[in-house]
Amino acid sequence: MTIHHPSTPEIAAYLRPPAGTHPPLDSPAYKSTGLRAPSQAPVVLRHRLTEITGPLLTGEIGPNDHDLTRQHAAPPIGERIIVSGRVLDSDGRGIPQTLVEVWQANACGRYAHSVDTYDAPLDPNFSGGGRVVTDSAGTYSFTTIKPGPYPWGNHHNAWRPSHIHFSVFGRSFTQRLVTQMYFPGDPLFPYDPIYNSVPDEKARQRMISSFDMENSVSDWALAYRFDIVLRGREQTPFEEPHE
């Protein structure tokens, strides 16, 4: 017998990501997954109210959070770039007023973080963290310097391709995403187990920004474009049965 709870709302679930889009948690080529990836398969949770809602954060944005080259007394060393794009759902709708957080290494590939021991110079004028909120069309933009590649201890002579870490929320708990933006043509792609942890090659390439001459600023900065696509929703609400 199926009855309906008197106040059960009708809920259109979010679409499940296609296989191959996200990396398997257990990805042996990335060694740290061995002790941290769960051994049991996740339990599939039907989307209910807590999953279709989520934090609508505009954050506490400081005046220079959108410009990582203006957070100190002098500009940082490095190739100044403008990174912009849209946060969208898979229906192509921009997600307005949503928080985008970024962090990255300096131009030499060194993070301003106590755990980073890479023997490359720190830049006193670069902290490497920024945040912006999308506009009404879901567009974001920030200014930074191009981060350098850096070595890591995963295997002999392991180097990460240059990348900027991105964190986005979208509109729902279900849409939460943390990713990395890469730069076109990086010769390190074939060697990086984190980039290659994404099984589908086309999906992998969607993490690579495109060179954006149109948004470059004469005598000031080159530009890169990076759109972030989050899951969209099913077309029809699902009426939840209670047995």
């Binding site: 889009t21 962090w103 980073d116 990395q180 993490m207």
Partner: peptide, 23 residues
């Protein structure tokens, strides 16, 4: 309806506090 393909997830890495720490 054209459906856009999703952006994959990647690890936060060891330096997440540079971007994600709110006091």
């Amino acid at each position: 309806m054209s459906e856009l393909a999703l952006t994959p997830s990647q690890t936060v890495g060891p330096y997440l506090s540079l971007g994600l720490t709110w006091p």
